[in-house]
């Protein structure tokens, strides 16, 4: 609003705000300059470097390095892991957020802390937890081995670790949103005779639609990009249990710098796409709220 406050009788040429409402020019220049320099050094240059390195030897090499059997299997595995863990976390996240935001019960704070746990634990530890549970040295792991069920160093372990690491994204996004919206609309629906499911799908869900999408996108980005936890449980078998981030590390360690950056550029493209969709969602959300 401050932008519109103008003295009624001032001539139109005096448009610069007064000293009282703004910082001196040099402060503004320095602040904005620092922000941009920081942005360029820490985000733009590395991002550009990934693509420059990836395309250093031309499109053909780029296409070839992405389409080797090992790369394709890494891409496939990453998609499979995301396709399993994101929907599950969508269900878990909505359920958790719904119970936390709409109901009062004992141990609610504890539940919220539990939801946050994966954020506060280092991903490496998240992976090690599963090694301890499912490893051949644990009794449970041994029992599974007898039944010929492979969890660790196989796809199920990678999925479990990914679910653990990405669990908070949907719930954390929804809880504040649902709390802010309150229970009024749901109460009205119930009073008018709607059942639990109808209330959820016709009242609650439309209200949280954009927040939910936002959470899913963040969750998906992390599920595809997770390195630490997955590295611990994967076993690094090329062509079988390497996800894209692990495959990038392997290529880099084998002095295959161009292919490493080519595969890494896929993750960078994913990040850029995520950013676009995220901006779109924020824009729609802003529109609806305005």
């Amino acid at each position: 609003m401050t932008g519109f406050v103008m003295q009624p009788d001032s001539p139109p040429s005096v448009r610069t705000p007064t000293r009282a409402t703004t910082e001196p020019l040099w402060v503004r220049v320095v602040l904005i300059g620092v922000a941009f320099a920081f942005f360029a050094v820490f985000l733009l240059i590395p991002l550009a470097a990934v693509f420059i390195e990836a395309l250093k030897k031309g499109w053909d090499t780029y296409a070839n390095s992405i389409s080797t059997p090992d790369s394709i299997s890494a891409i496939k595995l990453t998609l499979v892991v995301a396709a399993i863990s994101v929907p599950l976390n969508l269900v878990f996240g909505v359920a958790a957020a719904w119970s936390v935001a709409k109901f009062e019960f004992r141990g609610k704070q504890f539940l919220i802390s539990l939801i946050d746990l994966p954020f506060s634990v280092s991903p490496v530890i998240s992976g090690l937890i599963y090694v301890l549970i499912f490893g051949a040295q644990s009794r449970f792991g041994q029992a599974l081995r007898e039944l010929d069920i492979r969890v660790l160093f196989a796809v199920p372990g990678i999925v479990l670790a990914t679910i653990f690491v990405t669990f908070p994204f949907v719930a954390r996004e929804l809880i504040p949103l649902m709390q802010a919206q309150g229970n009024d609309e749901e109460e009205a629906a119930v009073m008018l005779g709607a059942g639990g499911f109808t209330t959820f799908f016709r009242v609650t869900l439309p209200n949280i639609k954009w927040g939910l999408m936002y959470g899913i996108i963040l969750c998906n980005a992390r599920a595809m990009g997770e390195f630490g936890a997955v590295s611990v449980v994967s076993g690094h078998i090329r062509g079988l249990t390497n996800t894209i981030p692990l495959h990038v590390e392997i290529l880099y360690n084998e002095y295959n710098f161009v292919p490493a950056f080519a595969v890494a550029s896929l993750l960078a493209i994913l990040a850029l796409l995520t950013l676009c969709v995220k901006s779109f969602i924020e824009w729609r959300r802003g529109d609806l709220e305005a």
Partner: peptide
């Protein structure tokens, strides 16, 4: 033939933990 590579000690640990 599938290959897995990492530090020697880490690999031994993985086999102990059930890497086949």
């Amino acid at each position: 033939i599938n290959q897995s590579h990492a530090g020697s000690g880490k690999q031994a640990r993985a086999v102990i933990d059930g890497q086949d």
